[in-house]
């Protein structure tokens, strides 16, 4: 006991103790030497890499600059976004339906869902897009009607399934199989007591699903869905095989006329990176929205986190309790 405790004269009486506030800790912060060394190494490597690319003798940055906001590229990027939105919309809606069907007590309904997922997850998406695109080769006419009768309507496959629709079907139906598994994992993650309490109140099975289970499943569903959306944004480049002019097709078409292949790939990549970045930010805010009721305080926004990091430079950044999905759900873009 010395001056440092801030108590003057004699040992404090027991009754006094609660009143004297202990001095704030002033310790020399731990120096993270390896952090600094590794940062320097990484920066040096990155600089070397960027330098190599930027100064590559035959890389014409002026071409990149010329095309990055070019009309055709912008149209392509827009179509990429549209394809992503439509395919994901189909995937999510159909995925939720399939997931609920999969968990249905009705064995017919649940096996239909099982079979769908088995089939569409078991074949490459490239093959599926190709399949829809070439369907007219084996099935020149499509129609609905009563089986074994001549009642019904028919139309030629080519007029029904345009290249654009073929891509949308291929991507959307495939995505539904993955989304179904993601949604199912989310539904299972909701504690059974919730269903029980809702049923005890007299809610019907579908009501329980829509009002009670799915909103809670969202916390588990959203992170991998964000992953899926980002993956889809890039997978839309498969539209190339159907000559649907989205971003990658446009870049390729331009490149095949002026032979600036790498330059146009860079243009496309910059756009893909830009759009996935936007999605990443969007995902963060949606996750934050659905964390409502599961955390006492909402997690900070990136801006708030950044500010806090600046003010507590030596301390490790605060750990935000995440709602990470199990790794098994994140199949990434490698299909």
């Amino acid at each position: 006991m010395s001056e440092a405790t801030g108590v003057s004269g004699g040992p404090p009486a027991a009754a006094d103790r609660p009143r004297t506030r202990p001095e704030a800790i002033k310790a020399v912060p731990l120096r993270h030497v390896w952090r600094w060394i590794s940062a320097v190494v990484v920066l040096a490597l990155a600089a070397a890499l960027v330098g190599t690319i930027v100064t590559a003798p035959n890389l014409r940055w002026d071409v990149v600059g010329q095309y990055i906001f070019g009309g055709l590229i912008l149209q392509g990027a827009l179509l990429t976004v549209e394809l992503t939105v439509i395919a994901m919309a189909i995937g999510i809606v159909l995925g939720v339906v399939l997931a609920v069907m999969r968990l249905s007590p009705n064995p017919v309904v649940s096996s239909v869902s099982w079979f769908y997922i088995w089939f569409f997850r078991g074949t490459p998406v490239l093959v599926q897009v190709f399949f829809w695109y070439n369907l007219n080769a084996v099935l020149p006419h499509i129609g609905i009607g009563l089986p074994f009768t001549s009642i019904g309507v028919q139309a030629s496959t080519n007029s029904l399934i345009s290249p654009l629709l073929a891509v949308i079907l291929g991507l959307g139906l495939n995505e539904a199989a993955y989304m179904a598994e993601i949604v199912r994992a989310g539904i299972i993650s909701v504690e059974h007591g919730q269903t029980e309490a809702a049923m005890a109140l007299g809610m019907r099975r579908l009501q329980v699903m829509r009002r009670i289970v799915l909103p809670q499943a969202m916390r588990v569903i959203i992170p991998p869905t964000g992953n899926e959306t980002i993956s889809m944004l890039k997978t839309t480049s498969l539209a190339f095989i159907a000559a649907v002019p989205e971003l990658f097709t446009r870049a390729e078409q331009i490149a095949s006329s002026n032979f600036d292949i790498i330059e146009l790939l860079i243009v496309a990549s910059i756009w893909y990176l830009f759009m996935t970045s936007i999605l990443t930010i969007g995902q963060y805010y949606i996750e934050r929205h659905y964390a409502r009721g599961s955390q006492r305080a909402l997690p900070p926004t990136p801006l708030q986190r950044f500010r806090r990091m600046l003010f507590t430079f030596h301390a490790p950044p605060p750990i935000v309790e995440g709602v990470e999905a199990p790794a098994s759900l994140q199949h990434g873009g490698g299909r």
Binding site: G193, Q194, A197, G202, Q216
Partner: peptide
């Protein structure tokens, strides 16, 4: 049928050991 079972359940209140409140509401 399910619908009638649900109606009957709605006339009986039940309280659980672990509350089972809906956490998102």
């Amino acid at each position: 049928p399910d619908s009638e079972v649900c109606t009957k359940r709605s006339e009986i209140g039940m309280v659980f050991q672990r509350f089972n409140l809906f956490p998102h509401m």
